[in-house]
Design a binder for these strands. Sequence first.
RNA 1: GCUCCGGUAGUAUAGUCCGGUCAAGUAUUCCGGCCUUUCGAGCCGAAGACCCGGGUCCGAAUCCCGGCCGGAGCACCA
Length: 521
Amino acid sequence: MEQNWPETQKKEKPEEKKLPALPNLDKFKQIVTRFSPNPDCVLHLGSARAIMLSHEYARIYNGKFILRFEDTDPKIKKPALEFYENIRRDLKWLGVQVDEEYIQSDRLPIYYEHVEKLVVLGAAYVCECAQETFHKITVLRQACPCRDLSPLEHLERWHKMLNGDYKEGQAVVRVKTELDHPNPAVRDWPALRIIDTKKHPHPRVGSKYTLWPLYNLAAGIDDYLMGITHIIRGKEHYTNMIRQKYMYKALGWEYPEAIHYGRLKITDAFLSKSKIMAGIREGTYVGFDDPRLGTFAALRKRGITSEAIKKMIIDVGVKANDVTLSWENLYAHNRKILDNSSDRYFFVSDPVELKVNAIPKTFISKIPLYPEKPERGFREYTITPNVEENASSFWVSKKDTLNMELGKIVRFMELFNIEITKINQQATIDAIEPKMLIVEAKYYSESYDDVRRIKAQIIQWIPKGTEVNCEIVLQNAQTIEGFAESESKKLKPDSTIQFERFGFTRIDKVNQKLVAYYTHK
RNA sequence: GCUCCGGUAGUAUAGUCCGGUCAAGUAUUCCGGCCUUUCGAGCCGAAGACCCGGGUCCGAAUCCCGGCCGGAGCACCA
């Protein structure tokens, strides 16, 4: 026992938050969890709880994690081929190891078998009532005309269903519950219906089947057959557990442990499939990875790491109340990860030309990629003043010129100090186009120590002529244009860096132009 | 409307089952300071919460009742 179930709640130091122990562990030989998405959309942060918690528990207990595609609605929540692979890719990115994978559209005969069994047992029946009629009757806690027919008659109806004698909407299989159950939604729930797959072909199996299980039948049977010990899913499924328990009882099965957590939202992001899909269709979003979306694809593109998401989810835990996460919280986790793995580079936004005169010699600036760890290397720039004027021009951020005034000493980081000799009226700078600003300075001194005491502003600089055009895409999809230093051309797409005094970004494209996505400060 | 579930600082969470050690812990945010050739990291400090009202009890964040607020379900969706 002790070995099988490592401690989940060690007292120790309160360093890493741990998940609470799963209930009734000793009832099971091996813990089995599952994540069961409908491949009708991409995955987003709203699914993170189900994924991370289910997977994490499987790993903690040396159990098994199953991915199950629930693609049994070819009509309303129609799956699409692209999303199966998409979901697998997202899970991989999230660091999830799938031990087994199932696709429900491959398993229809299994569901049919169980339906037949339930019908024979008298635990399910084929109902020919119109939907509306059925509800009118059950609201009154009464049996519909079909319910009390003999199992034999229902078996006959069932075979008619299999034969295709009914058309869409003409019959439905219901699982018997209790007609006086306080919640009308539980009373004789529908388990399987007919879909005209000539009109609505399934993306994987086309028109091969017309009888399709509903959620409670398919998920309920699969959870049992796959040996799921702990179901971790959203609280919208709470009533489904109650419904399914009737079927389990009829079949003599024991229902797994079920944990229902609350909805997860994040401020200002759309975490609803329908809104995402609508936005894509209408062209509001450039794609599933549009930075405004809460999809994993978008988060990935923005440089949010899966480790940060995992930490966040473990932090949130399994409570039944809804949570509205703040981006700041996610960023804090992510920053800790990125800070260590990201090299530092220079970026100037709204570049302003700054000419430095009276440069006494050629300077070679070796700038560490990561100041605290020189062993990570350097990038190097040589500043050679022109012979006519001993001058050289640089690009600096307009933002930084806002603080400049005549006579002020400013340090070019890791290069030299300058004194401002010419600049537009301070009050007007803000309104002037960066290109129209005229800023000049003269060389002041080289050593950092010279300006340390006066706390001179330390700014980023890029030698004119070496700049790389750079576009930074923000979370709101707006972009910032500027220049990055030339060494940034060596960066690989998908790496994350920090543009000093600007923020962390993920490199998206390195061509003529550098395209980066802003991650966070 | 009916059936469930939940309400601890800005955000999230611990504690609630088995009332006292909780004048409420932690993370993050915010604020102040230190450090730093980044407005990042790190360090120190400060601020900030038990939905409301009754009841039980020597004692309630924890138990009971009522209210308020929030969420979910009430599909031939998942």
